[in-house]
């Protein structure tokens, strides 16, 4: 009787017409009832058609507003840890192992960068400095791409490049602190071996360096970091600890 009762909830569950503890109870039941799960899926797909039937062009302004929010919103990391906490149907476990791990790397990489950058833009929302606006513009660029590389000194360097703007943002996590007389210097390294100064990394705070915005990035250029005397130099004097090809 009880089981039958629960099974008839597939319809109201698919339509979000069930709430609170009743909903939770049904969700627990779903984990042990593959036939209910299949039925719910089919009914949810059906509800999607009901939604499609009332589609309506949104106001023009909505797209710009949404894309602007997206540019300043950090994404969630994928739920890889949950799979260790509670048993899942075998199909989910397979999926988690196959897909979620590379997805995790990708999502986290973006989250780290956006998190660092968001820390700035949220704090001073409305009074953003010119540099913060430029950083936001790189992140919002349609061709913005993210690259990560481990450095030879440990830690990870991240570059977000916007090729059409010829700009990039550099951040790092886990780089070791340097002696007072030393500094990390950023370079744009041209195909011919010519290196152009692209800025100094700020002191490490909380395991990270603040984002550096640099311009003058051309097709085929690489981004490198070297350890230099305090104040920086006009050309690299040591072997780069990391080189990233942002293309």
């Amino acid at each position: 009787m009880l089981r039958h009762d629960l099974h008839t909830l597939t319809g109201v569950y698919a339509l979000d017409a069930i709430a609170g503890s009743e909903r939770e109870r049904f969700e627990r039941h779903l984990q042990h009832c593959p036939s209910c799960g299949n039925e719910v899926r089919g009914l949810q797909e059906t509800a999607t058609r009901l939604a499609g039937a009332v589609a309506m062009a949104p106001p023009e302004r909505m797209k710009g507003a949404v894309l602007a929010s997206v540019a300043r919103t950090r994404q969630l990391p994928p739920p890889v840890i949950e799979s260790h906490l509670r048993p899942l149907p075998s199909r989910s476990i397979t999926w988690t192992r196959r897909i979620a791990i590379p997805a995790a790397a990708a999502c986290l990489a973006v989250a780290i960068v956006l998190g660092v950058l968001l820390g700035i833009s949220r704090q001073q929302l409305g009074t953003a400095t010119a540099q913060q606006r430029e950083i936001a513009a790189v992140l919002a660029a349609p061709d913005a791409r993210l690259f990560r590389e481990k450095t030879s000194m440990g830690g990870v360097a991240t570059v977000v490049s916007a090729a059409n703007l010829h700009k990039f943002i550099f951040t790092s996590t886990g780089l070791p602190a340097l002696a007072d007389a030393k500094v990390y210097e950023l370079w744009i390294m041209g195909p011919g071996g010519k290196a152009t100064r692209a800025g100094l990394l700020a002191a490490i705070a909380g395991g990270k360096t603040a984002p550096v915005l640099a311009e003058g990035l051309a097709a085929g250029d690489r981004v490198g970091v070297t350890v230099e005397p305090a104040g920086g130099t006009s050309k690299p004097t040591t072997t780069p600890i990391v080189v990233i090809q942002p293309s």
């Binding site: 008839t8 909830l9 597939t10 319809g11 109201v12 698919a14 339509l15 017409a17 039925e39 089919g42 009914l43 797909e45 059906t46 509800a47 058609r49 009901l50």
Partner: peptide, 12 residues
């Protein structure tokens, strides 16, 4: 509950 489920199954 039954009505909604039956209706939705027919729609499906």
């Amino acid at each position: 509950k039954t009505r909604i489920r039956d209706g939705l199954i027919r729609m499906r």
